[in-house]
Amino acid sequence: MTSLIWQEIGKGLWDTLYVSVVSTLLAYVVGLPLGVVLAITDKSGLKKNFIVNKTLGIVINILRSIPFLILFVLVIPFTRLVAGTSIGAAASIVPLTIAAAPFVARLTETSLKEVDSGVIEAALACGTPTVKIICKAIIPEALPSILSNAVIAFVTVVGYSAMAGFCGGGGLGQIAIKYGYYNNNQTVMLVSVAVIVVIVQLFQEGGLWLARFKDKRRKNAK
């Protein structure tokens, strides 16, 4: 492998990292509040609301059932509108965010529903308004679970971003396709995949460590 290819892989690594991190963060900006709405409008939630819960649930299910590559193509006009282009690493942030946000909403919903209903009842009993119950009791109590789920979301986005390489997105996925698949260079393909595997491993382990560290249900928590 020439040094040029190594340079490409280096750039691909950077592209994959920043695209995945930014997309995951944006997906949380959209998905976290949606997850809160899903959790509290549920029939066992704080503000039961069947219509809101079902409507949002259906929209999220539809978005989640569209395969990522199809979604990528479907939203190209919107991607052009937001990013000015539909080609390249930065532009792929748009479809990645759209794909990940509904997933994040479901993950968040699950995390929030795990919170002990007794704790919420105690907060209600001391005269806490709903917004404060959500921000000061439910979300902090669910934080370790939200963090471990964020790792799952990130790893999924890394996978999607590699797929985006197929249709004009940048990053390691594109390098694996361009040099590995189209030019039949097995080494580049394997190296690109190996780098993606390492990214996933590092974030997975790091994220889980952080979630454990933040969880004060341990006997030796500080």
Partner: peptide, 16 residues
């Protein structure tokens, strides 16, 4: 409700 304290069988403390 702030004038009515309440305690529970399961304590219901904020674990975090």
């Amino acid at each position: 409700r702030r004038k009515i304290g309440m305690i529970f069988q399961g304590f219901n403390l904020l674990q975090q």
